[in-house]
């Protein structure tokens, strides 16, 4: 099985280069790239500058050829595309993701500066989901068909039918001080006067800014995990070994927690491998609704502004995390379930 996982790790390499190559090509080939944007900016700026200084009198506002060439060189567009990719990969292997066009800072710094927000919301969401869904799923399985099961199922499915960002927007309207109640702030990660607050004031402020986004993150993921847990427990409860346990005279508690639960948690544990992706957690939609400067908004903005080094940087990190997360999930799967044999 070790050789299987070594092979899986080696397979990351072609997949990784395939993904980066395709994205790189798409980014570089499509029109309206950073070069065109910069030229357009200069043209507009030049227009303004021209009227102020009164120089030239050239109304067409053509940029001198030399400047265009210089810009082309700055963005590296003077070289053929395959050479650009090779340069990018060589730099990547030296752990250099390049410099952001927009922020004029190394890409890695730009991305790392968003990590705290992502980890904060990601971790809280992750822990809360597992903390609530697993016990709820187990309880629903044991009480399958009861009123509680029916009502909680309905609630869970209602949550599933509302996109998280839409729910967040609704909460802002209701509780954000727009038309109804003014309970929570309109968004942001912290208040602007956060630094001047007392210690408890800081905590209160942070919690106040956390509740609505976290609820929006949770609302969709509740259904999947709860129902998965419930079905898994029910399936195990109908197995022969449970009947054996009952016929041995064990108590219901013992059977559920000692026998059924351990096997039921196997499919749930596999999701844990993707916990490493938490550093990049963050949905564009929810961050946009709550005006949180996280990874989601960063990737969205960098695409819109054609900040290609940042786009590629986020892609590199998220792809690696995803691919490694897949393998970790499988390793966990094999560890918790001795029946699973990969080959």
């Amino acid at each position: 099985m070790t050789s299987y996982f070594i092979r899986r790790f080696l397979l990351i390499i072609p997949t990784f280069f395939g993904i980066t190559l395709i994205t790189f090509l798409i980014l570089q080939i499509v029109p309206g790239g950073p070069l065109e944007m910069e030229i357009m900016k200069i043209r507009m700026g030049g227009n303004k500058g021209g009227t102020e200084s009164g120089s030239g009198g050239n109304s067409t506002q053509n940029i001198p050829q030399s400047a265009v060439e210089e810009l082309t060189k700055f963005y590296g567009f003077d070289k053929p595309i395959q050479e650009r990719y090779v340069i990018w990969v060589t730099n990547l292997l030296k752990l250099d993701l390049g410099k952001s066009y927009v922020y004029a800072e190394p890409v890695s710094d730009v991305i790392v500066s968003r990590f705290p927000v992502s980890i904060y919301f990601g971790l809280i969401g992750f822990i809360l989901t597992y903390l609530i869904c697993v016990p709820l799923g187990v309880y629903k399985a044991v009480k399958n068909g009861s009123t509680f099961d029916f009502i909680s199922s309905a609630l869970v499915f209602i949550g599933y039918a509302i996109p998280g960002f839409a729910f967040g927007a609704l909460m802002l309207v209701l509780l954000g001080g727009g038309s109804f109640f003014d309970v929570f702030p309109l968004g942001g990660f912290r208040s602007s006067d956060f630094e001047s607050l007392s210690f408890f004031g800081k905590i209160a402020d942070q919690i106040n800014h956390t509740i609505l986004p976290v609820v929006s993150y949770l609302i969709g993921s509740f259904a999947t995990l709860t129902i998965l847990t419930k079905n898994s427990v029910i399936e195990n409860l109908s197995q022969d070994y449970i009947r054996t346990a009952f016929s041995k005279g064990l108590s219901e508690k013992r059977v559920i927690f000692g026998h059924a639960l351990r096997n039921s948690l196997i499919p749930i544990s596999t999701g844990l491998g993707h916990a490493i992706s938490l550093v990049l957690a963050g949905s564009v939609l929810i961050e946009k609704v709550f005006n949180i400067n996280g990874i989601g908004l960063l990737s969205f903005d960098s695409i819109v502004q054609r900040d290609y080094p940042v786009v590629m940087g986020i892609l590199v990190i998220s792809t690696l995390l995803l691919l490694v997360g897949n393998i970790i999930s499988d390793i966990i799967y094999a560890l918790v379930d001795p029946r699973i044999r990969f080959k």
Binding site: L11, T15, G18, I19, T23, V30, V284, S318, T319
Partner: peptide, 22 residues
């Protein structure tokens, strides 16, 4: 499967936004 894995890992929201902005 390799091709599909590559295709499936492409962040499709990225690509849609890139295409839509052109």
């Amino acid at each position: 499967l390799r091709l599909i894995e590559i295709w499936g890992t492409l962040p499709f929201l990225f690509v849609i936004i890139i295409i839509s902005s052109i």
